[in-house]
Design a protein around this nucleic acid. Structure first.
Lengths: 150, 150
DNA sequence: CCTTGACTTAAAGTTAACTTTAAAGTGTAG
DNA sequence: CTACACTTTAAAGTTAACTTTAAGTCAAGG
């Protein structure tokens, strides 16, 4: 199965211009061209693009992705380089997981907060509460924010 | 306890100019000034800033944060608005969690891939492998990428 | 009082990641 | 063979989120 730029773009849910931009930035050195100069994507290319898309969506800058892809093109001499890029990315992902979890905790507290305010029709009921009135699972996050609940 | 711009910046691990930029963009309407016009942050302001920082770090655009903060300043009439902003953010966070988990799965597979290549000194051993030679836990991710392993 | 370091603003500059535009070429269906 | 949708490129434009600069103001120690 072979794909055009637009088909690949549709699968990855991005604009065709984005794919061309990635190519121009050296992220897709493996993509071949037809005799007329048109990009032809293979199934394997699509696998690469899915990986690239994931790395980009979780914050790896394009320059770093290029370094990784270029290394992979150069073969066995660059295994160490690629392994260390991947290790670093794993660290960053675990960091991001933690940040995401903290934000989710805050957001779930806010959900409870505004649902309570909505039922009462006012935030006053919440300002009047002490810690004892607030479900225990929200206590750590309130402590984290450390000021009054908003 | 009161704080200056630089102190707050240090606590949140950002540049002081970033805090001033957030203020200019209307993210900090609650921050008061000294008679001389210098920003004075309270403990409660810091709580706000931690929330804002989390929302921003998990991809909420500054315009949306402003909408949320401005609503909070307007009191009880905006409880519905704020609740829906928070619900939407929760959706986005759960989406991000999924994307992050997928990327982490890919990255862990790559760790195994390059560690194996490193031990052998070449990627050839991996190209020669069939699915049966690869630990089962990586099968779903290989299927997701669908092309050959890189 | 004066120095010094941190604060203030407005405005311009930077960077990353695209997107748009324009002009031209490709490939396929009728 | 021609029409037409889709592809190509280079170059310019856009947007978000800061950062830097410049010119000035504030506040605490000596």
């Amino acid at each position: 199965m072979l794909y055009t730029v637009s088909e690949v773009a549709k699968i990855l849910n991005v604009a065709p211009s984005t794919i061309r931009y990635y190519d121009k930035e050296g992220l897709l050195p493996f993509v071949e061209r037809s005799t007329g100069g048109i990009r032809v994507f293979t199934e394997a290319d699509l696998g690469w693009l899915k990986t690239i898309s994931c790395l980009k969506n979780t914050g790896m800058p394009i320059k770093t992705i290029r370094l990784y892809v270029e290394s992979a093109m150069q073969g066995d001499d660059t295994i160490d380089t690629r392994l260390s890029i991947i290790y670093e990315q794993r660290e960053r992902l675990l960091e991001q997981m933690k940040e995401l979890q903290l934000t989710l905790d805050i957001v779930e507290y806010k959900c409870w907060y505004y649902e309570t305010a909505q039922k009462a029709g006012t935030e006053k009921v919440l300002n009047a509460m002490t810690l004892a009135d607030i479900p225990e699972k929200y206590h750590p996050i309130i402590e984290h924010l450390h000021g009054k609940a908003e």
